[in-house]
Design a protein around this nucleic acid. Structure first.
Length: 483
RNA sequence: GGCGCAUUCGUCUAGUGGCUUAGGACACCUCCCUCUCAAGGAGGAGAUCACCGGUUCGAAUCCGGUAUGCGCUACCA
């Protein structure tokens, strides 16, 4: 198959893998998997100054976590420098590029002047038509030049973006951009075009911020005699204030989402729906459905804001869909790191297995599991004594209720949910209380909170001794509170 | 400043000239279920489809202008 799809995810290791980049990777991956094509990872490490240690691993980890497996790469542009040099050289000898000896200072001053005069900033092309003699003089001064592209001074560059339709740019608005920097590294523009050609990329799916650069790339393809790929620019993901995503928007790195207990499957589903939709109602689309239904035609053109509430909801949906064992295994590390230090380690897996059914349907993130289950593990419960006294009750009736309950529970041999219900439900009526009142007092006594999993199941897991001890402690609190 | 692009409930979105009194989801509110919470069920509120003008028998959908926002305008990607 000569015409099969080849796409790439081309991150630059200048920082953490934020959700916008990851969403771009996802769309590339979905597009490749949908069409039976090839997904390639290429690290664009051409900016030596901004390179961040460990960034590549973080990016690759993020992809692996989400299950975005790649078929080729990762390739590193820093290891392919000759290729870019050759291309630049060829462009120079063809007359499509030239050496520029302007100093950074001169460029900066020039730009400042242009801005001051409210003119469009851009290189003034001083070195575009240097004579051999002038060039030789500059070389003699020991200046290492950059290579600039000789952008056509007139005409238009147009292309048909798969998502945005036909886009037209006037060539005279594009300046002579740099292809090769003086440190020998290529700029994004050169490296990107050379590699996309060499790697036979058929579709370039990248963020919208590249739309304005695309005419430069088209011009380069043309000058190099390469067949350009199809372009599809993806809408951006913005922060809640509609500004470009940055650290102050909270979690922006995909690794943070993992740490906060989001499931990769939920993350994939959620991210896929940021800028893409199947129809007017389908929200839950697990990976296989995503792959089979993904299409560029249904990618939207408007920037999206990441809605945490909806992510939380969706993560809850995925958590509930897990098998109990799977959920337990995934929750384990979060329990281990989230439970107070005083709780003895290693945690008992058997005990945890009995707790998790009560937690699974209530957790929206794995990180919440530790908090939701904490009272199952700690020795001392910490709560305000007033919580023991429910609506329509007072200290006396609360004490009496707990005291009586304690007496009835003590002789119980079987301490399962059913037996507990048989004993406690009638007790409420006997005490002249509503079930909510009795159970509420017991719930607080036994869990320290007013919202918890169902009482009988909870008590059953806690066990008779622990329940009795906690009820005793609650009675103590009530007595102290009354002094 | 120049160039490019966008604009439907708070947010994600459906919608490509009549099927639309603009549909769904999250969040919010009410009710049901119920020992609390969660989940689930039933309802509700929430969008003059940015604005102005035009084309048309008919426009969220087509055209023009304005506003706002975003992106690019680096020897960053």
């Amino acid at each position: 198959m000569t015409n099969s799809v080849r796409v790439r995810f081309a991150p630059s290791p200048t920082g953490y893998p934020h959700v916008g980049n990851i969403r771009t990777a996802l769309f590339n991956w979905l597009f490749a998997r949908h069409s039976g094509g090839t997904f390639i990872v290429r690290v664009e490490d051409t900016d030596v100054a901004r390179k961040v240690e460990g960034a590549v691993e973080a990016i690759l980890d993020g992809l692996r976590w989400l299950g975005l497996d790649w078929d080729e790469g990762p390739y590193y542009q820093s290891q392919r420098l000759e290729l870019y040099h050759e291309a630049a050289q060829r462009l120079v000898s063809q007359g499509d590029a030239y050496y520029c000896y302007c100093s950074p200072q001169r460029l900066e001053e020039m730009r400042a002047e242009q801005v001051r005069r409210k003119q469009p900033p851009g290189y003034d092309r001083r070195c575009r038509d240097l004579t051999e003699k002038e060039r030789a003089e500059k070389e003699a001064e020991g200046i290492t030049p950059v290579v600039r592209f000789k952008t056509p001074l007139s005409g238009q560059t147009r292309f048909n973006d798969l998502i945005w339709g036909e886009v037209v740019f006037e060539n005279d608005t594009i300046d002579d951009f740099v292809l090769l920097k003086s440190d020998g590294y290529p700029t994004y523009h050169l490296a990107n075009v050379v590699d996309d050609h060499l790697m036979e990329i058929t579709h370039v799916l990248r963020a919208e911020e590249w739309l304005s650069s695309t005419p430069r790339h088209r011009l380069l393809y043309q000058a190099l005699g390469f067949e350009p790929p199809q372009f599809a620019h993806l809408p951006m993901i913005l922060g809640a204030d509609r500004a470009k995503l940055s650290k102050r928007h909270g979690a922006v790195s995909i690794t943070e989402y993992r740490e906060q207990g989001y499931l990769p499957e939920a993350m994939v589903n959620f991210l896929a729906l940021l800028g893409w939709s199947l129809d007017d109602k389908t929200e839950i689309l697990p990976q296989p459905e995503l792959i089979s239904s993904f299409s560029l035609e249904r990618v939207s053109r408007t920037a999206a804001i990441l809605n945490r509430d909806k992510l939380n909801w969706m993560n809850g949906v995925y958590i509930r869909s897990l098998s109990l064992e799977d959920f337990t295994q995934r929750a384990l590390p979060f329990l281990d790191s989230g439970l107070p230090a005083e709780v003895k380690r290693p945690l008992s897996i058997d005990y945890i297995r009995r707790i998790m059914p009560l937690i699974q349907e209530r957790a929206r993130t794995l990180a919440e599991v530790a908090e939701l289950a904490q009272f199952f593990f700690v020795d001392q419960l910490d709560y305000a004594p007033g919580l023991l006294i429910g609506k329509g009750m007072n200290q006396k009736s609360a004490s009496q209720a707990l005291e009586t309950a304690k007496q009835r529970l003590e002789p119980l041999e079987v301490f399962d949910a059913e037996s507990l219900e048989v004993v406690l439900r009638p007790l409420a009526e006997e005490l002249g209380l509503k079930t909510g009142q009795l159970f509420g007092a017991l719930r607080v006594a036994v869990t320290g909170r007013t919202a918890a999993p169902p009482l009988f199941q909870t008590m059953s897991v806690l066990g008779r001794e622990r329940c009795l001890r906690r009820i005793e402690a609650a009675l103590d609190r009530l007595r102290q509170g009354g002094r």
